[in-house]
């Protein structure tokens, strides 16, 4: 039993990172109906910006760990938001009224471009975050050991997501985002500045993705230029499982995917665990064709 609980905890930690990234996919998709394939690279960028401040500039030594992490969070979310905004301006805005698949290919191109920019700037080698940044406290319950930091990762993700949920559901701007997601034309007629909504979505989504990158860097201690590929694909899958375009869906999808993976790994086979997760994805979509929490956008045929 304790073994099972342990797996659940692992699943939730892995899943909360997926969920954080999935939010970026889902918000952009909700408003623009665009799969932002470059989102995984914004996640990588977040990890590297964090690396720059925490390791290269050694803010941890300069400001002390707590303040350093706080400041780094600000810098990371700021710079990934800026990158996301630029991405939207350059690669997606000109294609807003074109065929949707044109934007998909543009996104794929942007993803290749960004990944290689990161490689040229920071090099191809793996980079290490210092292992001493976070305290390594181990919690022993019933003979099983749980690193406390997992709880920290999970809580951070939940906190961010709760904040986003409140923002979307209880502010005017959140209302505008929801309106634009349902029907851009109608929202425009009702006085919603859709351009602004898109800009906001392209700031929040990448900022969350960047934060996830920082979290992965700090927790796992190792980053490299193509780490966004795998995480991006997993997070996108999570967003679809939950019902793409739906914010609580991204959270549910992320956590569920994390659990599926860990349980598949623990009780079936490590070599097949991704296949298990994808089979589950297909089954979910066969029986609920628009994800677990249904996509809350108008049916578009």
């Amino acid at each position: 039993m304790a073994h099972f609980v342990e797996q659940i905890i692992y699943g939730l930690t892995v899943g909360s990172v997926y969920a954080l990234i999935a939010l970026g996919y889902t918000m952009v998709y909700g408003v623009m109906k665009l799969i932002n394939f470059a989102h995984g690279e914004l996640f990588t960028l977040g990890a590297f910006v964090g690396f720059f401040f925490l390791v290269t500039l050694d803010w941890g030594g300069v400001f002390g760990p707590a303040l350093a992490i706080g400041l780094t969070i600000v810098m990371v979310s700021g710079s990934t938001a800026l990158a996301g905004h630029l991405l939207e301006r350059v690669a997606y805005r000109p294609l807003r009224h074109s065929d949707r698949l044109a934007a998909v290919v543009s996104a794929l191109g942007a993803s290749i471009f960004l990944q290689n920019v990161i490689m040229v700037v920071w090099g191809a080698q793996y980079r290490a975050y210092s292992a001493s940044l976070l305290p390594q406290v181990i919690w022993r319950v019933a003979g099983q050991s749980f690193p406390l930091i997992r709880l920290f990762v999970f809580l951070t993700a939940i906190l961010v997501m709760a904040g986003l949920y409140l923002f979307i559901n209880h502010t005017r701007l959140g209302l505008a985002i929801r309106a634009a997601a349902i029907d851009q034309g109608a929202a425009k007629l009702m006085g919603v500045d859709v351009r602004k909504v898109i800009a906001v979505v392209f700031i929040i989504g990448p900022a969350l993705g960047g934060l996830a990158g920082l979290l992965v860097g700090v927790y796992y201690g190792q980053i490299n230029f193509n780490m966004g590929q795998l995480y991006g694909l997993k997070a996108f899958t999570a967003a679809v499982i939950g019902g793409i375009g739906n914010i609580p869906g991204a959270m549910v999808g992320g956590l569920l995917l994390g659990l599926l993976e860990t349980l598949g790994d623990a009780y079936v086979s490590g070599a097949w665990k991704d296949a298990i997760a994808f089979v589950a994805l297909i089954l979910i979509l066969v029986f609920r064709p628009t994800g677990i929490l249904r996509e809350r956008v108008a049916e578009k045929l």
């Binding site: 797996q7 692992y10 796992y220 790994d265 086979s269 490590g270 070599a271 665990k273």
Partner: peptide, 20 residues
């Protein structure tokens, strides 16, 4: 005897399986 997936970050499950 089993595989892990290269590129992944979290090997806690594998470790707990091995430990058992």
């Amino acid at each position: 005897f089993d595989a892990i997936n290269p590129g992944e970050r979290d090997f806690a499950v594998v470790l707990s399986k091995i430990k058992a």
